[in-house]
Each structure stands twice: as C-alpha cells, then as structure tokens.
Design a protein around this nucleic acid. Structure first.
Lengths: 190, 190
DNA sequence: TCATTTTGTGGACGGCAGTCTATTATTCAA
DNA sequence: TTGAATAATAGACTGCCGTCCACAAAATGA
C-alpha cells in the first residue's frame, strides 16, 4: 500500500534519469569496475546520497539503466508459423549476441555482482534471467507441438543448456557471435 | 629462468600454508565476502604485506587453497571399459556436485572475482575451468569411439552445454544434486 | 503566511583494498 | 665475523563504499 501523503518535496525524476544516463555512458566508456558511485553522481550533477536514496548499489542502478534501453529493442521471438523454430532460435541468439557487443562486459559485471549480493540477485533473476529463460522454453515447447522437436526431449533442460552455454562463454570471455549461435542451434536440433 | 641467487632470507613456507589454511577455514565459516584480507592475515599470524607478497588478491589465495585440497580427491573419470560412459558422466557430475555442497559458494565467489580481474581470470581459466572441460570432452569422444554417443554429435558443444548448465545453476543459486546430474545426463544421451 | 512533510545536499565517519616505505630478521658467501 | 641479499613486519597513505546527520529546498494544507 502506498501511503497517500500530502505535501513534501517531490522526487526529482530528472535526477533519476540523469543518474541512469550518466551511469550507462560512463560504464560504456570506461568499463563497469572503473566507474565509482561518486563519479556517477558527480557526472549527473547530483548528490551521492540521492543515488543511494533510489538504488542500493551500483548494480541496481545499472540494471535499471540497461532495462530502460533494452525495453526499446526487446526482441522476443514470436511464436507464429512464419519460420521454423530452428531458424527462430538461431535468429534470437544472433540478436542477443549482437546487443552484447555493446553491453556484454556490463552483463558480466552484473552477474558477478549478483554473486555477492543476494538482494540484487533476486531482482536480477526475476526481472532479467527468468523472462529470457521462459522465452526459450516457450519456443521449444512450440517446436514440440509443431513436431520440429522430438517429444522425448526436455525443453526445460535444453533451455538450461542453451542459456548455460551462453553464460559459460560470456563469463569465460569467449566470443559470442553468429557462428556460436549457429553451432548451438545445430546441436540443439541435431 | 630462475635467478640462482645466494643468500637472502628464505620464503617462509609455514606462512604460506598458514595463510591458505586460515583463508579456507574462515571462508567456510563466514562466507567469502565476509572475510577481509586483513582478517585472514591476522588469523594466520602473518603481516598483511606478506600475503600480498605471494598473491595479488584474495581470489588468488583462495584458489590456491582450494587447489591444494582438491588435488587430494580429484575424481577424473577413467576412460576404461568398466562402465558405460553415460554412467561415468552421471557419477562424475554427482561427485562434483557433492564437493560443491562445501565449496559451492566459494566457487561462485571465484567466478565472480574472475569477472573484474582479468589476471585472475586467466589463471582460473587455465588451471581450473579448462581442465574440467577437457575431462568431459575426452569422455564424450571416448563414448563416440565406443558407439555409445552418435558420431554426428559435437562433443565440444555438448561439453559446453554440460558445464554451462552447471554454471547457470550454480550462479543462479539453484540446487546442484544427484537429480540434476541425472537429468543432465539423460538429456545428453537422449 | 506559516507549520509540516519529504527530498536534495554537503560533510563526516569507519572499514576495507591496495600500495609504499622504513625497519628488522634470516640466510649465504667472502 | 662481516656484508650483501632477500623476506617479514608494522605503519602510513589514498581511494572507495556505505552510513549517518544537520541543514536547505520544495511541495501541501491550514
């Protein structure tokens, strides 16, 4: 329940968006680890405490910032019958990897942050990880219904394979490109 | 080339082993993030600088400490014909997951550290990640030679699937148990 | 206008990481 | 025995994080 309060200084939405913009810009310029919270606040022209009033950690702020951008070009695969699911999977992966050319290092940093911050992990998992996992499982189920994917296969486990391969590559600083997308898809639909 | 120097105070091997022992003990007691470098040094009865003389970061120290212990019960699957490869894979995974009941959180912390420390990542990858990946690929190749695994499958990619699934589960704080080992194995040899 | 409520600001504080330095300890060789 | 070489120690220092606090700013309602 939101307390229906009257009066009080309103929260500055400009401060929030300035902080998100500054964070994303600085991190892409210098790398996640090289940017301090104080620098982000200074660059946004906002007091450090104001940042802490909105987000608990740098990871929370950056996740929010990435989200705002990502929602614009979210590329969820549509479950129509225009293409076969194998093509859809490959194109989806290619699309994801394409965006990671810009924010791959940031995503690595967020995953790392989730490891020593249980609170952030919860938010990261439910808002970011799980939805993407659901996309793949839905696609694989759809493929099963269409007879493109054997009924005896386990979509949940295969989805784990796909995301796992992706994370494993990402976190070990391997290359994520169209070739890898093709190789993954080939092995899934072998 | 090692400089054949004469004289000079010898490096204290006791300090090294005391530091490793203290680190492992404290981390298992309190968790990786809760233990400061100063605390480890203090607990080992050694100056903080001495720790820095041997390792660059807490992650380097802990990796060395875990290594010493792990080498004692390294459970590389033997490539004989005693059992089929499917059973070997499942038992290998069960064994790995069993040890992670103790050091799973530590491994998560090490993977996280590797994300903001390129030097540590290199050492972690070559000394820890890659050897384990090779074990699985070797096993899968062996399975192919024995006709237990289709020739058209790609052992390297399947190995990435297996390790990826493992990492994905670990980093998302899912349960790693015998059931998961069985499910992974089943889906690999489907 | 004025009291109240809430947000923004600036500064201070303790804790930890990582680096540096002066001093002391331990070894080998001349 | 003495000097050179190397390691261990204790302490200082900077930079960053996270928290706390007092004060100013901006809104509402009486």
């Amino acid at each position: 329940m939101k307390k229906a309060t009257s009066g009080g200084r309103p929260i500055s939405t400009k401060a929030s968006s300035d902080l998100k913009a500054a964070a994303l810009r600085l991190i892409r310029e210098r790398g996640y680890e090289k940017v301090s919270i104080a620098t982000i606040a200074k660059e946004a022209g906002v007091a450090r405490q104001t940042l802490y009033n909105r987000w608990n950690t740098k990871a929370d702020l950056v996740l929010a910032a990435v989200f705002e951008e990502t929602h614009n070009y979210a590329a969820e695969p549509v479950l129509d019958d225009a293409k076969d699911c194998r093509t859809k999977l490959e194109e989806f992966l290619i699309n994801v990897f394409e965006h990671l050319k810009i924010d791959g290092d940031t995503l690595r940093a967020l995953i790392a942050s989730a490891q020593h911050d249980a609170t952030f992990h919860a938010s990261f998992y439910t808002n970011f990880v799980l939805p993407r996992e659901k996309m793949i499982t839905a696609l694989l189920h759809h493929a099963q219904e269409r007879g493109e994917f054997p009924a005896k296969r386990n979509p949940e486990m295969v989805s784990t394979f796909i995301h796992g391969a992706f994370w494993y590559r990402l976190l070990n600083r391997g290359t994520l490109d169209a070739n890898f997308a093709k190789d993954v898809t080939t092995e899934v639909f072998v």
